[in-house]
């Protein structure tokens, strides 16, 4: 069996890559993809711990996280499309006013 710490290490690496993506990229769509990747790496850690303690609770939590992530993607992309229609950009440096 692969030790649990390997999975947690992989999860930490993917999470850090997601953080770097959120901090460095300027395209709002790619920032959003990086957020999704961070959610995914947290899910991986949860499933690894569920396997370590032989419990289904971690997997059920991941199921809920995936559901909420799907809702979040739908609303977030709708917001991006609306912002694009009024500002004609997805560059987060250009989106700097509260009033569209």
């Amino acid at each position: 069996m692969v030790p649990t710490s390997y999975y947690v290490l992989l999860s930490a690496v993917l999470f850090s890559l997601g953080v770097i993506g959120v901090l460095t990229r300027r395209n709002a769509l790619i920032v959003f993809m990086s957020v999704e990747m961070m959610l995914n790496s947290a899910n991986l850690a949860l499933v690894a711990f569920a396997q370590r303690w032989q419990s289904a609770n971690g997997q059920i939590l991941v199921f809920f996280v995936i559901t909420v992530a799907a809702a979040e993607v739908a609303v977030g992309l709708a917001l991006l499309v609306t912002i694009f229609y009024s500002k004609n950009t997805t560059d987060i440096d250009e989106i700097n006013s509260l009033k569209g």
Binding site: M1, P3, L9, I20
Partner: peptide, 29 residues
């Protein structure tokens, strides 16, 4: 931003591998 991401990774590795006991070091069949 790159440096801060790498610092976060180093911090996570430190907490997960140097501050936890042997519970995570082995796999469970």
């Amino acid at each position: 931003a790159l440096v801060m991401g790498l610092v976060l990774l180093a911090e996570a590795v430190y907490v997960f591998f140097l501050r936890t006991g042997a519970a995570m070091a082995t796999g469970v069949a």
